[in-house]
Nucleic acid binder design. Structure first.
Lengths: 344, 344
DNA sequence: CTGAAAGCGCTTACAG
DNA sequence: CTGAAAGCGCTTACAG
């Protein structure tokens, strides 16, 4: 099973050249003579040589990996994002170091510390909910290009730094959804789901509030309802919408998972979403197209976002002097039956 | 931005001990005196030292990574699997090297070659469709613990080797679905979707055929219909089911994506799945629970499979002499409305 | 209990 | 055009 790994020294011995010459051949230098190159290459093949990139990186003080730390890989939005990141990194000759945090800031610290020991060239981080900018700074240091995706960690120490930031246009997206419901005649519109202390939830609530106010509708604080951003918790908290008469006739949901949970909860109460109550989501996960009824939502093309994030990080690896950038990605409204409920 | 990284030598200088002593402290050896340890640890903190695991691995001839190469991360089944793998590897102090192949055997060869240069301790591979066992052997060599998940590559050179294999009980799963439809009174049952040359499709077809025969129903070759294992292609090929009278009244589908595509196609023809035509899937992806109607399917808990795969690989890393194992994972039938169509 | 020296598998000036 | 020597950041016998 485990014979010793073939090294450059074995090749040099095998073909009678020095290790330096073999190294030059390996990396395609024009220096070695064609005849030398051919002999070395034959020997490489003969012995089944595999390049040891870790050793090369150590000597060259470079890195050929980028860390991707993601809050929840089982969410299709982040899985697509990860696929996009890996596409672009792979094409550029980098390998992706994957780490999942399961939305736990403590676990995130451990994962990041472990990543740092593996010396990545840069890091793409979709922070766990409740991440603290100071803690992140402590573990990531000042030396490494970092791109933060999707959520802004709490605390100013972070924003004062030189990290890139890429996020969806949450405010405008929620505004689009809210206006869409207003256009269908709704006036009593709730904002359902999400944790009020997460940056994306705050921004979406803001877009919702602004759209209401622009239409002359006064936002009702009781109708901003917090839930965990999951289907289960959303379904459990649906009662909060109907505490008082008159109840809302529509809800802008924090994301698709929440919207799907809300639709299940409505059905359990004998209300048919899309007919008796209008619902919108956010993310356009695959389930949105096949739910009952299909879900009106906002699409952001997470795979393309992943590619964009990876390109940006590679850019900063090549040019560490580059200024940090805040990228806001447009989202587009996908209109489906869940929001077509009309007002009696 | 980029001051030099702090090394063990810097720490040794900073606190007046030798590098050897600092190294012992770092790795928690009992040799250094408590007082020495305290001084070294203070200096480590003061300078913000980060361990360089690549250098340590080089010296120790060990590896602290495991490669995870997956055919399609945007498929929630594999995303969950990846999350499970990463959970277990992370808890054991390993980092996950992620690589996606997009179902292309050529790209898979490139990704695997790149992984090999990063010297993983082992590799978990969910092969791209059409993978060749010989090609895999060429790039992976004989030295590395390998676990193949979900699909069996073509060619005997592979099976003669010492790789672990972990797959769902495709045969029994398809048999369960087929018997379920037979129990509902169906006799004209198609097997819809998948590529006939993939191992999982062959096994599922076999389970289907055996269940029919056990019930005294003769399988109809025209009703084994090939498609790409995607929603889109399945929807496009639905006509093949209705070429000839009498047409089937039910279909065991290769997987959930195919089943969802079939249901869309049925609806487009004015047939209501679950009332006019019975459908079953395979995988229990999240969409299965929220489709119209909800999809009867087979569940295999991909996250638990990922953990299982990672544990197995770590076991073989610790004990390279271990014999290869073929693990067949049970699946369970989840009954939902899509299969409740009754026969007139 | 601590330190000097060699070595993991590469690359990089520098001679020749 | 090719080779001998030093060094990347660690660890590991071996002295003392």
């Amino acid at each position: 099973m485990s014979a010793r790994r073939v090294t450059l020294t074995d090749i040099a011995r095998g073909c009678g050249f020095s290790r330096a010459t073999v190294s030059l051949v390996l990396r395609g230098s024009p220096l070695p003579a064609a005849k030398t190159r051919a002999k070395v290459e034959a020997e490489l093949k003969r012995q089944g040589y595999v390049y040891n990139r870790a050793a090369a990186n150590l000597r060259q003080r470079r890195s050929s990996s980028v860390a991707l730390v993601v809050n929840d890989l089982s969410n299709p939005f982040f899985a697509e994002f990860a696929a996009g990141v890996d596409d672009t990194l792979g094409a550029a000759g980098y390998v992706t170091l994957l780490g999942g945090t399961g939305e736990s800031p403590e676990r995130q610290q451990r994962v990041l510390a472990s990543m740092m020991e593996h010396d990545p060239a840069g890091i793409i981080l979709s922070p766990a909910e409740g991440s603290d900018g100071g803690d992140l700074r402590d573990v990531l240091g000042h030396r490494l290009p970092v791109l933060v995706f999707n959520r802004e960690p709490a605390h100013a120490r972070w924003s004062a730094s030189h990290w890139d930031y890429l996020a969806l246009d949450n405010r405008r997206g929620a505004g689009l959804a809210t206006r869409h419901l207003l256009d269908h005649g709704h006036r009593r519109i709730a904002f359902f789901g999400g944790h009020a202390d997460s940056s994306s939830c705050r921004e979406r609530r803001r877009g919702y509030t602004e759209a209401l106010e622009a239409a002359g509708v006064r936002p009702e604080p009781e109708w901003m309802i917090e839930t965990a951003p999951t289907r289960l918790d959303a379904a459990a908290r649906i009662g909060a919408l109907f505490m008082r008469e008159p109840a809302p006739t529509a809800a802008v949901c924090y994301n698709d998972a929440v919207a799907l949970g809300l639709m299940l909860g409505l059905a359990a109460r004998g209300l048919k979403p899309g007919r008796d109550f209008a619902v919108t989501g956010f993310d356009d996960i695959p389930e949105a197209a096949v739910s009952t009824p299909p879900l009106t939502t906002l699409a952001a093309d997470p795979r393309a976002r992943g590619r964009q994030a990876a390109e940006r990080i590679l850019e900063r690896v090549r040019r560490p002097d580059l200024d940090a950038v805040r990228g806001i990605v447009p989202v587009r409204l996908i209109i489906r039956a869940s929001s077509e409920a009309t007002i009696a």
